[in-house]
């Protein structure tokens, strides 16, 4: 059907022909459904061949490298009903087409809206944030995704739409490993729900990356409820360490009942660093990452204490 399939490897980077064979991704069929039901039908009909295209800020690069070669793309960008964030009661509902940039100014009052705004600025670069989606990050499940660590720290819930209806899954059960989640074939992540913590909660975030906009080597997201001067509930999530975001449970437990102080922040940070299990990789040796965990947890706690 397409007359230009054979030549790509031979072509020079400078082409003037208007039919030049220049495409890097493998060929695919493209669908742009207007409703969620149409999207689910397409996913069902095309089975494993089909991939959802949301912001494309992770999928298109992997297609350019031909690490991903989906033969069908279901573009959800025309499903305007999925483009929302809504604060309802004590939860924040985030639709599948909510872009990263929307969160740069708080989408809700209180500690969660402020945390999301702070975190958003650390994701990639401004133009990528205009296009990339919150739910796409959760579905992609990069171990160093800020949104993934944030949703784990806040104890969010994911809403999946699939051939057999809808189901909910807790963030803690969602992340299974590098780029691997509990999603089933034919399912789409339709919405993420975050608890809108009341003002008794304070949040903090810190990450380290070598260059602005790079994926972070390590990050920490914390949420703490303080009552009568002491910490009553504490959640500390780490990102960029292993294959998926994880909770530093022992460090969090150590803070319970304590009043906030610089000394206790240092102690919890040391505990999180001792408990985590980073591996050497091309970006950093394990010991360096472990030391970063210590610094990031301390910074995130310090921010939360001061809030």
């Amino acid at each position: 059907m397409d007359p230009v399939g054979a030549a790509p490897l031979l072509c020079t980077p400078f082409r003037t022909s208007s039919v030049g064979p220049s495409m890097k991704p493998a060929a695919f069929d493209y669908h742009a459904p207007a409703t969620l039901d149409q999207a689910l039908d397409l996913l069902r009909n095309h089975g494993e061949e089909a991939r959802i295209l949301a912001g494309g800020q992770s999928l298109v690069p992997t297609m350019a490298f031909r690490m991903a070669r989906p033969s069908v793309l279901v573009d959800i960008n025309r499903i305007s009903a999925l483009a929302y964030t809504k604060a309802e009661g004590n939860s924040l509902r985030i639709g599948a087409l909510a872009r990263h940039a929307w969160f740069e100014t708080p989408v809700a009052a209180g500690p969660v809206g402020a945390l999301l705004a702070q975190v958003a600025h650390s994701i990639a670069h401004a133009p990528i944030r205009q296009r990339g989606t919150f739910c796409g990050s959760l579905a992609h499940a990069d171990p160093a995704s800020e949104w993934c660590a944030t949703v784990l720290a806040l104890g969010g819930t994911l809403l999946l739409a699939g051939p057999d209806g809808r189901r909910e899954i807790a963030a803690a059960d969602w992340f299974q490993g590098v780029f691997t989640t509990a999603i089933e074939p034919g399912e789409m992540l339709a919405e993420v729900r975050l608890p809108l913590l009341d003002p008794g909660w304070r949040c903090g975030f810190a990450e380290f990356s070598r260059r602005a906009g790079d994926f972070a080597l390590t990050m920490a997201v914390v949420a703490i409820r303080i009552e009568d001067g002491g910490m009553r509930e504490v959640r500390i999530a780490l990102g960029g360490i292993g294959g998926r975001p994880e909770l530093a449970s022992r460090a969090a437990a150590l803070l319970i009942g304590q009043p906030p102080s610089a000394a206790i922040a240092r102690e919890a940070a040391a505990c999180a660093a001792a408990d985590c299990d980073p591996q050497d990789d091309i970006h950093a040796p394990a010991d360096y990452r472990r030391d970063l965990v210590r610094s990031m947890v301390r910074r995130a706690l310090t921010q939360a204490f001061a809030a």
Partner: peptide, 22 residues
């Protein structure tokens, strides 16, 4: 693949990497 920004254009007045949109 989205890293350099040389391809940045405005789509409906928002800046985007034109190599990451079809």
């Amino acid at each position: 693949h989205g890293v350099c920004g040389a391809c940045t254009v405005l789509v409906d007045d928002a800046p985007m990497r034109s190599c990451l949109i079809f």
